[in-house]
Each structure stands twice: as C-alpha cells, then as structure tokens.
Design a protein around this nucleic acid. Structure first.
Lengths: 253, 253
DNA sequence: CGGCTGGTTGATTCAAGAATCAGCCAGCCA
DNA sequence: TGGCTGGCTGATTCTTGAATCAACCAGCCG
C-alpha cells in the first residue's frame, strides 16, 4: 500500500496539484503562521478540495516539513558549496550573504516561513528543524576554523561563535524586512543591507582591522542613509494581518 | 465583577500561587513550546488544580502575554537606560550585551521562551510581541543615529541596520546556548561570547577600524578556543525533549 | 459554633479543526 | 458504449484541549 502521493509522474514532475498546494501552504503559513491557519485555508488558497491536501500530504505536519525541506535544502546546498570552496574568507562571507539575500529576493514568503516558523519555534515537531539550523552554523564554523588556521582570522575569535554571529546578523537583517521594519520592495536597501552585513561582520573579525578591501561590490559610496521614503513609520509598518486567530470565549467580558 | 485575579494582596505581593503558576508556565513553555503544551501541563508543573490557572489568568494567551511582559519589560527598561545614557558608543554597546547576557544568566528558561516563542513566531496573538521586539531595535537605532551625528560611527553605516545587526548577533549568540549548540553551564564561554559579540560588532562599525580599546573587560587574552569540554558533540547536544506532541493518527502505516 | 468568604478543585461542556471515507467524474481502453 | 481507474470532492467523524462551573474546604468573624 505504498504512498502514490509523491511523484505520480516522472521524477521531478511531481503532480502539478501537489506543487500548487505546497505553494499555497507557504503563502498561508507566511500570512497566518503555522498554528494560526487550518488545512481548510490552505485548500482554499490552492483552490482545491479540502480532502486533496490529505491526498498529497500525510498531515499538516508533513506539509510544514515539506516546505522546510524544499526551501532549506536549497539554501544549505548553496551555503555548503560556498563554505567548502577555495578562496579568501572575505569572499566566502560575502557570497554567503549573497545566497541568503538572493533566496529572499526570489521568494520572500518562503524565507519568512523558514525564519518565523521553522528555524526557531518548536512548532512543527517532526524534522530536525533545529538540527538543520544548527547544521549550517556548524558548517560555517568549520569554514572559520580553516580560515583561522590559515591566519585569516583574529586568533582570539571563536569559530563557532563567529559562525553564530554571522548568521545572526544575516537572519536579523532579513527579519527586519520580514517583519516590515525595513521596506522589502526597496531593492537598493536590500543590496545595502547585504553589503553592510558582510562588511560589518568582516571588519570586526578579520585580522587586519578595517583593511581587507572594504567596498568591492557596490559602486556607490554612501548614497542614501535611511533609504525609505518617509521617516520612520510609527511603531510597526508591517502588514499586520488578521493575526488574532485564537481566543474564542473571552470569559467574562 | 472586576478581576480579583491580579494582586489579591498588596501591590507587588501578588498571590504566591499566581507566581508559582507563572513560573511553571515559563518552564513548560520553555520545554515544550507554547503550542506544544496544554494548560493541564502547566497546572501539573505548578502542582495545582487545572481550574486554578483560569482563576489567575483569563486564558492561555494571557498567560503567555504575562510571561512576555514580565520578562521583556525588564529587559527593555534596562536596554533603554543604557541607550539613553551618556557616554561613548563603545561603552553602551558593551553594556547592552551585558544586559542581555545577564538576563540569560539569571533565568535562561525565560529568555528561551522570549526568544523562541515571543520575539518571532506569530504565536501568541494578542500583544505587540513583534512591536516590542521592533521597539528595542528602534530604540537602539536612535542611539546609533546620535552616535553617528557625533562622528562615532562610520558614515556609510545605516543606524537601523546596525541596530538590527547588533541584536541579531546578541540573539543568535544566546540562541546558540538556548539551542544547546554551546554549553550554557560554561560561564567562561558565556563571558567570552558576550565580549566577542560586542567586539566583533564594534570593530566593524566604529570609525577607527580595529582601534577603540579592544579588550577592556576580559583579562585573559585567548585562553581556550572551543570552550566545551569534548569536541563538537555530534549534530545537536541540545536537550531534545519529548518534542513530538502532535500527529495523532499516522494515516496509513 | 455556625455560617460566610474566597481560594481551590477537577469533572463536564463545548468548539475547533484534523483526519477520514464513501463516493463522484473525466478520461481511457476494450 | 460500457465499465474501469484514479485523481478529486467535501460532508462526516473523532480527538483534542480550552474554558466553565458547581461544589468543596479552610479560616475567620459574629
């Protein structure tokens, strides 16, 4: 009684429908959060019958898990390629930032789900969510260890910590966009953010203080400071969806 | 008809029971996550009848909200005090890192809940969870803006982004402990992490490259590199609790 | 001492929503 | 054309767990 769920057709060409549903899931998760939405929402978003979701995915958890695997595995692969490549640390760090921001550019919703729902919260139980997160950090920690042996790193810098800090910076940088603190439509801002993350990180970590070819990527020196058009949009310019799913009976109102 | 729930006695001396329950909630949330636990778990942990939880808290959400307010407001207050104080940026940044790590030292569980459940996830709907998070970033962004005007910051550094990066680093540094990547019982490691975060961040951001009085706090130059006793504990040394709450009927075999 | 007050109990109620399943229908082969 | 296959449907079932509430008890006051 095998699962005919995966790939009814040839290898990569999994059912069109399955992908539609997955896509819808990403969107809905991004909008309402994993716990804040019901399977019915996903089905509706996909324009598909409720039951069909269960035809393609064992349960809600597997849905999230799949979103995770799909998105994360791609990122890990790219990050690993960079981390294990040859070349100066400076380059690698910049390219890792590239990978992350490119992922965001291509599919912000997916990144949002990855960051908000999966990377942290003990939400979807199943897979090694945390483990996976930890994996990337380990991966890049090795990179730093090698860099350190090669004398590219300040000797007092702990590779593991450095790795954590790099991804912390990247993640929080992205979070700023995800959460709406910064305007994600502002491409220039994205570019600047990416550059600044790599730069800030490197200059603090590299052996030779503020040297090490600071501006290689962006041509403009320092065009605009706070790229958003208006001044700081009060408190939170984020979308602020419906975001109040639970709380059925307010006890004594 | 008013809520006799809060503070049946004098102001600060809220019912002993209430605090017991709150404490239990923090512990259980930290262990299983907000969505992964039932009120019954909290009650059991507190050694208290199920119904009593509802005597002191309107509902599950309010419980999380209270955990949030309790923990976060303290942190914000301290962070604000630092950010708005007089003195060189270097000092302030170091003190902010202090505040965060001190909070962790005092009550790691609470910090875990704050980081994993509240700061990010669209979990507990109610309060401005995200807003609060955003607030701190704004707060420190102002600090950076002023620093920049005072010429303490590289001119090409965006204050908002810098702020995000600082907290990203701090948060991810803490997450490393929260998640078990690093051993939280290793006090030296905590100290080093704190120092390294501030240092790395500053040197990349400050006007004068790698200058600016690097080692003010820690006396030892570079004692141990990877402070954990053993070598990298495979994949994930984290507690790995039960962490598989959902998934009732596995459909077909 | 007897009855009142308010913290405490936990079985019961109830709604949400995950998962199921009995079929429907479109395309295809004989 | 008739019947078969398998993707697809969505009302129905079933489980979970939040929230309620009627009763209980300990101390206290009159």
């Amino acid at each position: 009684m095998g699962q005919q769920k995966t790939a009814p057709e040839s290898g990569t060409r999994e059912s069109e429908r399955r992908r539609t549903i997955l896509r819808a899931a990403i969107d809905v998760f991004a909008r309402k959060g994993y716990h804040g939405c019901r399977i019915a929402d996903v089905a509706k978003e996909a324009g598909v019958a409720y039951g069909l979701v269960y035809h393609y995915f064992k349960n809600k958890d597997e849905l999230l898990e799949t979103v995770f695997e799909t998105g994360w595995s791609g990122f890990i692969a790219r990050a690993r390629a960079v981390a294990e490549s040859e070349g100066p640390l400076v380059e690698k760090v910049r390219r890792i930032a590239d990978v992350a921001f490119e992922a965001y550019r291509v599919d912000p919703r997916a990144v949002k789900v990855l960051i908000l729902e999966i990377a942290r919260s003990p939400a979807g139980a199943r897979i090694n969510r945390q483990t996976a997160f930890v994996d990337v950090i380990r991966l890049s920690a090795q990179m730093f260890t090698r860099a350190k042996e090669a004398g590219e790193l300040r000797p007092d810098v702990d590779p593991l910590l450095a790795s954590a800090l790099l991804f912390g910076s990247i993640e929080m940088g992205l979070t700023a966009f995800v959460v709406g603190l910064a305007d994600a439509r502002d491409t220039a801002m994205l570019e600047r953010a990416k550059a600044q993350i790599a730069d800030s990180f490197l200059h603090g970590v590299l052996l030779g203080g503020a040297s090490a070819s600071a501006e290689p990527v962006k041509p403009e020196p320092a065009k605009h400071e706070l790229p958003r058009g208006e001044d700081p949009p009060d408190v939170a310019p984020l979308k602020r969806e419906k975001a109040a799913p639970r709380a059925r009976a307010p006890k004594r109102g």
